[in-house]
């Protein structure tokens, strides 16, 4: 059986650096096997550019299994492309048609300054976590793991929120470039667990303050973040974050 192939045209955002002017460049990708991943298709285009002595398209990627959160670009207007619950590396060419024109842009947000082409600086996420996205337990101090029980539904909800890979698609998809879903996922994970309780109030205040400080916008409930999230993190986490924040304002709390 002959392998199914398609030929496509790419419109790719090229920009040498944060200060340089950007533009779309067109590339033709011929006879791409449909079983290739989107990034393997870019590998082929880049190999062609390298052979011609041209500068290959810079894009981030690492595990290519959808878990490290390195990859990401806006494909035809969708962060990580049009497939639901999929990182860019797990998007396969079988979802495209022969003759398609595919537009590829970086994740755009004020808080994600561009580095080169499709590569952006997402270190703002690290600083949000630094503000309190952890439980402050020192190595060696923990009691036996069974000293504190966690009801299964709580553990499952915590795991649902903890599945975030920190890719930034939520920010790229949001009209306000808000990092609410990312921030809320961590707050939500930790406030569902008894171990996270002592730092609950300090954590939510500090993380929200840092998120605002980084220049991310506010949530105005477009829910685009949930639609773009490759790990299907729910906007209900944002409600949890808001509730946790309100708790800190209550008298006597």
């Amino acid at each position: 059986m002959a392998e199914k192939t398609i030929s496509i045209t790419l419109r790719v955002w090229r920009q040498d650096g944060p200060q340089a002017e950007g533009r779309f460049a067109s590339y033709h990708a011929k006879d791409i096997p449909a079983d290739l991943s989107f990034l393997e298709m870019l590998d082929i285009v880049n190999a062609g550019l390298e052979k011609a002595g041209a500068d290959p398209i810079a894009f981030e990627h690492d595990c290519r299994e959808g878990i490290c959160g390195s990859c990401g670009a806006v494909v035809n207007g969708h962060a990580h492309g049009p497939q639901r619950a999929t990182t860019l590396c797990q998007l396969y060419m079988r979802h495209f048609n022969d003759g398609d024109v595919i537009t590829i842009e970086p994740f755009r947000a004020k808080a994600f300054p561009l580095i080169k082409d499709l590569v952006v600086d997402r270190s703002a996420f690290d600083r949000i976590i630094q503000a309190g996205g952890y439980i402050s337990v020192k190595t060696g101090t923990a009691p036996d793991a069974h000293a504190q029980l966690v009801p299964k539904p709580k553990a499952e909800q915590a795991m649902d929120a903890a599945a975030c890979i920190g890719c930034g698609a939520c920010v790229a998809a949001c009209p306000n470039a808000s990092a609410s879903l990312f921030t809320a996922a961590k707050i939500s994970q930790l406030c569902k667990l008894p171990q996270g309780d002592p730092e609950r109030k300090r954590r939510v205040s500090a993380m929200i303050r840092q998120m605002d400080h980084e220049g991310f916008g506010s949530c105005s409930k477009h829910y685009e973040c949930q639609a773009a999230c490759p790990k299907e993190i729910k906007v209900a986490n944002i409600a949890t974050m808001n509730r946790e924040f309100l708790r800190t304002l209550l008298p006597g709390e």
Binding site: A145, Q189, L190, Q195
Partner: peptide, 22 residues
């Protein structure tokens, strides 16, 4: 054994039984 204790204390959401045990 210490590793599991420490990671649970960090909030790692390990799989649990309905009883709440790991």
């Amino acid at each position: 054994q210490n590793i599991i204790d420490h990671c649970v204390a960090q909030g790692v959401p390990f799989a649990r039984e309905y009883s709440g045990y790991l």
